[in-house]
């Protein structure tokens, strides 16, 4: 791959993406159109996140990629390998060691710091899309702050189900202005959206970049009498015993037996390394040793 530029994209393209990122940071929650390039991986598989990461990476960076919270899912591996090859940068699975983290569908459990960047892969950036299919109309709704329809959706949920039936990609309002799709993270992660790190959202196929600068006020939409509730499976992690982390449910036998494990693999590993043991866990052995 030595024929390609550092981090694959040419410098002109990276500059164009950086301009979009700066604009996005200046208007938190606003979707900035950008001339997304065709990447050597399919649309819908993180091309937006990959382009944002490529525009942010420098040779001194340490890069981490997670998909569903895990470093070892196939698409995370594939993206990590892509940047190892095209940028030759250091990679890590340890959240605290990474200067740039690309994620799909999760926010790491460990709090991020001001010198870190979190890049999200976004499939559909438009929070109003499934209420209003036309892009022309939704852009107008954002510019005029016409968000009544968003609450109509939540109202309908409660009137039909007795509760807001949105479990992931739960819409938020940014700094009291733009309604934003936080990407398909579980609503459990929504409270973490107000954080110290820079958060960048890249949607390749839909050609949009948006951002949350550090410590931005991000509020999940709700009703006063039906407040937003972050939720997770009512269990502790069976490997590390954590009661505060988001859990994957795993089917372990033919009888349909279940166990619950941390979706954030690095969080689980670090807890086990510190000698926390869950109900079905074994004492920690450092696999990397």
């Amino acid at each position: 791959m030595s024929d390609y530029n550092f981090a694959y994209l040419d410098e002109q393209t990276k500059r164009m993406i950086r301009r979009a990122i700066l604009k996005a940071l200046a208007i938190p929650g606003y979707q900035v159109p950008f001339a997304s390039r065709e990447m050597p991986m399919p649309y819908g598989w993180g091309t937006g996140g990959v382009q944002v990461s490529a525009a942010c990476l420098t040779p001194g960076d340490t890069f981490k990629v997670i998909d569903q919270g895990a470093d070892d899912t196939t698409n995370a591996i594939s993206i990590r390998k892509f940047f190892e090859k095209t940028a030759g940068i250091a990679t890590t699975e340890e959240t605290a060691q990474a200067s740039l983290i690309q994620t799909r569908h999760r926010i790491p459990e460990a709090a991020l710091s001001e010198d870190q960047i979190l890049v999200y892969q976004v499939p559909i950036p438009e929070p109003l899309r499934f209420l209003e299919p036309s892009e022309v109309e939704t852009r107008k709704m954002h510019s005029l702050e016409e968000y009544g329809l968003m609450h109509v959706k939540l109202y309908e949920d409660i009137s039909q189900h007795g509760a807001i039936a949105t479990a992931y990609a739960y819409p938020v309002k940014v700094e009291g202005r733009y309604v934003m799709d936080p990407s398909p993270i579980p609503k459990f992660d929504n409270p973490k959206l107000s954080m110290a790190a820079i958060q960048l959202f890249g949607a390749g196929r839909e050609q949009r970049i948006y951002a949350l600068p550090p410590h931005t006020r991000v509020v999940s939409l709700d009703f006063e009498d039906h407040p937003f509730e972050p939720s997770k499976a009512d269990h502790d992690c069976d490997l590390c015993g954590a009661s505060d982390s988001y859990l994957d449910e795993v089917i372990v036998d033919d009888a349909g037996g279940r166990m619950f494990v941390c979706s954030d693999t690095d969080y689980c590993r670090s807890r086990r390394a510190a000698n926390h043991v869950g109900a079905q866990g074994a004492p920690y052995e450092d696999a990397r040793a």
Binding site: E146, Y147, F223
Partner: peptide, 27 residues
């Protein structure tokens, strides 16, 4: 009207558009 939205949601939309955020009151 929004034909795919309940009667209550149709009536409530204008209230929510101007800032009503209490489900019980809207209903």
């Amino acid at each position: 009207l929004r034909m795919g939205v309940s009667a209550g949601g149709n009536v409530g939309e204008r209230l929510m558009a101007v800032g009503a955020r209490h489900y019980g009151d809207i209903r």
